[in-house]
Amino acid sequence: MIPRYRSYLSYTDRLLQDTTYLKSNRNLTERIVDKIILQLNRVYPQVLTNKEAEKFRCLQTPLRTRLSDLLKHLTKKGERECQEFYRALQNNGDKVYATLPSRSSLNLSDPLEISPNQEKVILNDHGPVFFLACFSVAAGLAFLMYYNNVEPKTPGSAKKVFGFTAIGFGRHIRNILISFLEDATLGQ
C-alpha cells in the first residue's frame, strides 16, 4: 500500500500511484509524451540516454505501451528521475498534471507542486490593522504638510511636529523630514 501523506510519499511512490491514471488518461497525447521524453533526454544530467529516448519514441509501438514502459523504466531508475518526469509533465501537460490522483494528498509547499492556476500571492502577513495604521500615519503626515503650507505663520505649526516625528524614523526618512524643515525655515 502506498502512503497518502506528503512526508512519506516519494516521487517514485507517486509515480507508482499515478501509473494507471496516466496510462488511461486521454489528454496525455502522443505529442505531449514525445515532449516529455525529449525533455528527459535533454535535461542535465540526462535522465534518458539517446538510445532510451529513441526506444520510447518509436512510432511502431502503441502510445500506451510506450508510456507504460517509460513509467516502469523511470521507477526502476530512481527518485531524481521520477521527479524530473513530474517536472516535464508539469511543463508539457499541465492539465494532466493538475488532475493527478497523487496531487490530492499533497501539501502545496513544494515549489515544484504549485501550478500557475493555484499560485497564491501573499504581499505581507501583517493583516488589515497594520495597513490601517500605515495609512493613518501617511494621511496624518500629508495633513501636517498641507497644514504647514497653508498657514505657515501659525504659532506651534507643523514644523515642531515634524521635528519630533523625525526622531522615531529611520535615517532616510529622518533626512527627508529634516531637509523639509530646513527648507521651510529658509523660506520665511
Results as ranks from 00 to 15, higher is better:
Ile114Asp: 15
Arg26Gln: 08
Tyr86Trp: 05
Ile176Tyr: 02
Thr165Glu: 03
Asp183Arg: 00
Leu67Gln: 14
Pro152Thr: 03
Pro62Tyr: 02
Leu59Thr: 13
Leu123Ile: 13
Cys58Phe: 10
Leu71Ala: 08
Asn50Glu: 12
Glu81Trp: 04
Ala88Arg: 07
Phe162Asn: 03
Ile173Phe: 12
Arg80Thr: 04
Asn25Cys: 08
Asn148Leu: 09
Asn149Asp: 13
Arg103Glu: 05
Gly187Trp: 00
Asn107Val: 09
Thr12Cys: 13
Leu71Trp: 05
Cys58Ser: 14
Val96Lys: 13
Ser179Val: 02
Phe164Leu: 12
Gly127Thr: 01
Val43Thr: 14
Leu132His: 11
Glu182Tyr: 00
Leu70Val: 06
Ala166Trp: 02
Leu141Tyr: 08
Phe162Trp: 01
Leu71Lys: 07
Met1Trp: 04
Tyr86Phe: 00
Gln188Trp: 00
Leu71Glu: 06
Lys23Val: 13
Phe85Tyr: 10
Ile37His: 09
Asp183Met: 00
Phe180Asp: 01
Ser115Val: 09
Tyr97Thr: 06
Val96Pro: 04
Gly93Met: 15
Cys58Gln: 13
Lys120Arg: 03
His126Val: 03
Gly163Pro: 09
Tyr146Met: 07
Phe85Asp: 00
Asn124Met: 05
Gly156Glu: 02
Phe135Ile: 04
Glu52Thr: 06
Asp110Tyr: 14
Asp34Met: 15
Leu9Lys: 04
Pro152His: 05
Arg26Val: 08
Ser68Cys: 08
Phe162Ser: 06
Gly187Val: 08
Glu81Asp: 08
Lys153Asp: 09
Lys77Glu: 00
Gly168Ala: 04
Ala98Gln: 11
Cys134Gln: 10
Thr65Trp: 03
Gly168Met: 09
Lys35Trp: 14
His73Ala: 09
Leu15Asn: 06
Arg42Glu: 15
Cys134Ala: 12
Arg103Leu: 04
Glu52Cys: 11
Leu106Ile: 05
Leu132Ser: 09
Phe131Leu: 10
Lys23Glu: 11
Pro62Glu: 05
Tyr21Glu: 05
Val47Ser: 11
Arg31Thr: 14
Asn117Arg: 15
Leu89Arg: 01
Ala166Phe: 05
Arg42Asn: 15
Ala138Trp: 11
Ser104Met: 05
Asn41Gly: 13
Arg26Gly: 06
Phe143Pro: 02
Val96Cys: 09
Tyr5Leu: 01
Lys95Trp: 09
Phe143Ala: 08
Gln118Gly: 14
Leu28Tyr: 08
Ala158Asn: 06
Arg42Ser: 15
Ile36Arg: 10
Glu182Cys: 03
Ala98Asn: 12
Gln83Val: 02
Gly156Cys: 01
Arg66Thr: 01
Leu132Lys: 10
Tyr97Cys: 06
Glu79Pro: 01
